[in-house]
Amino acid sequence: MTDIRKLINQLAAQENNLSATQFIAPCVRGGKVRTKVAGIIYTFTPKPRNFEGWGIFQPADEKIAAVVEEPSFPQIAEYLQLLKPLRLRLAYPLRSQTWLAYPVNEADMRQRCGYCQPIAVNLVTEGAKFETIIARTDGAAWWFDECDRRADPLITDKLREQLKQVTPPEKLHFRRLTPEMRTVYEIVAQQAKEFAALQQQRRDEKLLQQALQMGGGELHEFVDRQDHWIVEWTTADGERHTSAISKTDLTVMSAGICLSGEDEKFDLQSLVGIVEQRYE
């Protein structure tokens, strides 16, 4: 039978040891820190509550651990060496010191982690868009270790240059380009302000194309006119027309043919049928 008194004494001793323990841990703003004492994992709220970075903590009680001091670089390096590493390429910042990143080698990530996807890397203190870094995971989160000094900076420069030129991801081509580079470029492009107008244009084109195809027509080209589009399209037999289409609901503002002043009763999809019926 378990000696209850002995067990209580052991727990009391562990609590005393806990309050006297100092430990190093990384912490994101609004997050928690963890440590293991006598085989038991403890989770604490940091004090101050908004602390972010690496710290040496000391438990104030079973729920709160106060920051005692900032650890040295060798102490941080020793901690990180215990974690599983992975080479990643930075995409863009998510918040504060947390960046979204993508693996340099997808197969390597699958082998090491069992999955392959963009991941959030915390406490990124150096590096920039498209730079290669080494991050390490404790199984729950990824932590920045260092910039990868072995990486070719010319590739980073090339990706940035193509982004500045608003090169679409599918047209990205240069020597030594890998599928992973194209993927991270596409991730960045989706968030880059340089691509906002291009992305909107593609959405508009898809919308117009679908409406015309459902009616049996085909989009040739279109021009943006603030509240409407000037759309050039063709019927199934190749007859070309130009129509003004409302952005709000694809209502016909001007059909380009005589509809006896009833243009606005039709939308782009139904307009195709009206035009084709006119010649039957």
Score class of each variant (00 low, 15 high):
residue 82 L to A: 14
residue 93 P to S: 08
residue 188 V to L: 07
residue 181 M to I: 03
residue 206 K to H: 12
residue 184 V to I: 15
residue 80 L to K: 07
residue 85 P to F: 06
residue 145 D to Q: 14
residue 251 T to E: 08
residue 139 G to P: 02
residue 212 L to K: 04
residue 151 A to G: 03
residue 119 I to T: 05
residue 196 A to Q: 14
residue 53 G to W: 09
residue 136 R to L: 02
residue 49 R to E: 15
residue 228 H to L: 07
residue 217 G to V: 09
residue 148 D to F: 07
residue 209 Q to K: 11
residue 110 R to M: 12
residue 250 L to T: 06
residue 71 P to A: 12
residue 271 L to E: 01
residue 140 A to T: 12
residue 53 G to A: 06
residue 122 N to M: 09
residue 68 V to D: 06
residue 236 A to L: 11
residue 82 L to P: 00
residue 11 L to W: 09
residue 202 R to D: 10
residue 244 A to L: 11
residue 70 E to Y: 14
residue 72 S to Q: 13
residue 202 R to M: 12
residue 121 V to T: 05
residue 171 K to A: 14
residue 193 K to V: 15
residue 99 W to L: 03
residue 165 Q to S: 12
residue 13 A to E: 13
residue 67 V to Q: 03
residue 157 D to P: 00
residue 237 D to Y: 08
residue 92 Y to L: 10
residue 217 G to F: 08
residue 240 R to D: 01
residue 79 Y to M: 11
residue 253 M to Q: 12
residue 267 D to H: 10
residue 207 L to Q: 10
residue 143 W to E: 08
residue 161 E to S: 11
residue 262 E to K: 15
residue 96 S to V: 10
residue 263 D to R: 07
residue 108 D to R: 10
residue 181 M to S: 04
residue 90 L to W: 04
residue 84 K to Y: 04
residue 197 A to I: 13
residue 204 D to H: 12
residue 125 T to P: 00
residue 242 T to W: 11
residue 173 H to A: 14
residue 11 L to Q: 13
residue 157 D to C: 05
residue 120 A to G: 05
residue 143 W to D: 03
residue 18 L to W: 04
residue 229 W to T: 02
residue 15 E to R: 15
residue 256 G to T: 09
residue 160 R to P: 01
residue 107 A to S: 09
residue 83 L to H: 03
residue 211 A to I: 06
residue 181 M to D: 04
residue 252 V to Y: 04
residue 63 K to S: 14
residue 203 R to S: 09
residue 137 T to H: 01
residue 257 I to D: 03
residue 103 P to V: 13
residue 180 E to L: 05
residue 116 C to G: 02
residue 239 E to I: 13
residue 52 E to P: 00
residue 241 H to D: 02
residue 123 L to W: 02
residue 193 K to W: 13
residue 1 M to N: 07
residue 229 W to P: 00
residue 260 S to I: 11
residue 180 E to W: 08
residue 109 M to F: 04
residue 128 A to F: 12
residue 256 G to A: 06
residue 2 T to M: 14
residue 44 F to L: 06
residue 58 Q to F: 11
residue 5 R to Y: 14
residue 231 V to C: 05
residue 56 I to M: 10
residue 74 P to T: 10
residue 268 L to S: 03
residue 205 E to T: 11
residue 187 I to T: 04
residue 177 L to N: 05
residue 216 G to A: 05
residue 232 E to L: 08
residue 204 D to A: 09
residue 158 K to S: 10
residue 113 C to Q: 08
residue 272 V to W: 02
residue 160 R to T: 08
residue 143 W to H: 05
residue 70 E to K: 15
residue 245 I to G: 01
residue 99 W to E: 05
residue 208 L to P: 00
residue 175 R to Y: 11
residue 109 M to W: 07
residue 245 I to M: 03
residue 254 S to I: 06
residue 122 N to Q: 10
residue 46 P to W: 09
residue 165 Q to D: 14
